[in-house]
């Protein structure tokens, strides 16, 4: 459980990172909080010659709320997300989800950028970003570009990010309406057995907008379009919710692991989605 030797770089600008990535190519990796990468290096499941620490780049840190748009720097920690009062006011769903990630020690180090960019379907933030319909901001040798969170994930650990790009920030429209992030886990520090992020807007008794997404129930985070279709336009009666839950479960594709077999996970997914919808509805 010791990583092989590597060169450690700590540039202080994004450009510095890009030039290192361009120089070392596949031999280099960026590290944010390190919770995913370092264990893999220690188990020697990956061999990295150049580790580029993003911790020295001040432009990657912090939360800004500009009118209706919320932008969060990639190196903002989960602890900061959970304790930022302005963010909690503007988007309380972020705090609710952040506090369900791992444990306080992990949250002091773990960052939102690392969480979403790694492409691990077990991470909570990618699912949440589906719910929020967030936009990811990438910078590479060819300059800057934006990718919708819902278009970012291709398969487990495979994303739309190019090897020489880094994710610098995420942004999303200030959410409105009711919200919930529900998660079942075996213990503190664990990944989700099943988790769901839900947003619901109600106008005059009718659901005018909704969003439903799942964490760790497929090899990518899952945005549940069919579930949203069921909810929007309805009065959110029990039958509708049942249909939406069934649609979300249908969109899941979990694999068996030590958390349990597939039939169990699908069943719990239904329970968790229903809980999240019910909770979001109560806050709408």
């Amino acid at each position: 459980m010791i990583a092989s030797a590597f060169e450690y770089h700590k540039p202080d600008t994004v450009d510095g990172v890009i030039s290192l990535l361009s120089k070392w190519g596949d031999d280099a990796r960026v590290v944010a909080g390190g919770h995913s990468l370092i264990p893999v290096m220690k188990q020697r499941m990956t061999d990295i010659s150049h580790l580029i620490d993003l911790g020295g780049i001040s432009e990657l840190k912090g939360v800004s709320i500009d009118g209706d748009t919320i932008t969060i720097g990639a190196m903002t920690t989960q602890h900061e997300l959970a304790t930022d009062e302005a963010l909690a006011e503007a988007a309380p769903l972020i705090r609710e989800a952040s506090l369900q990630i791992a444990d306080p020690q992990v949250r002091y180090m773990g960052t939102i950028g690392g969480n979403v960019a790694n492409g691990d379907p077990a991470n909570d933030m990618p699912g949440l970003m589906q719910t929020l319909d967030a936009t990811y901001h990438l910078t590479g040798p060819a300059g800057k570009r934006e990718v919708k969170a819902r278009d970012f994930y291709e398969a487990a650990y495979f994303t739309a990010r190019e090897d020489e790009e880094i994710l610098t920030a995420i942004s999303f429209a200030k959410p409105s309406g009711g919200f919930a992030y529900e998660k079942q886990k075996r213990k503190i520090g664990d990944y989700a057995t099943a988790a769901a992020g839900v947003m619901i807007t109600i106008v005059g008794g009718t659901c005018t907008a909704a969003s439903v997404a799942l964490t760790n129930l497929s090899d990518t985070p899952v945005y549940c379009g069919a579930a949203v279709d069921a909810l929007v336009g309805s009065s959110l009666d029990d039958t509708t919710i049942k249909v939406a839950v069934a649609a979300a479960v249908d969109a899941s594709d979990p694999v068996a692991d030590t958390r349990g077999p597939v039939d169990f996970k699908k069943y719990v997914a239904g329970v968790i989605v229903k809980k999240a919808i019910t909770s979001a509805l109560a806050r709408a």
Partner: peptide
């Protein structure tokens, strides 16, 4: 008796 094994008990007893 972790979560999934308890769920299996309930499931096999027809409680779902």
């Amino acid at each position: 008796h972790d979560h999934w094994r308890i769920w299996k008990i309930a499931n096999s007893l027809g409680l779902h």
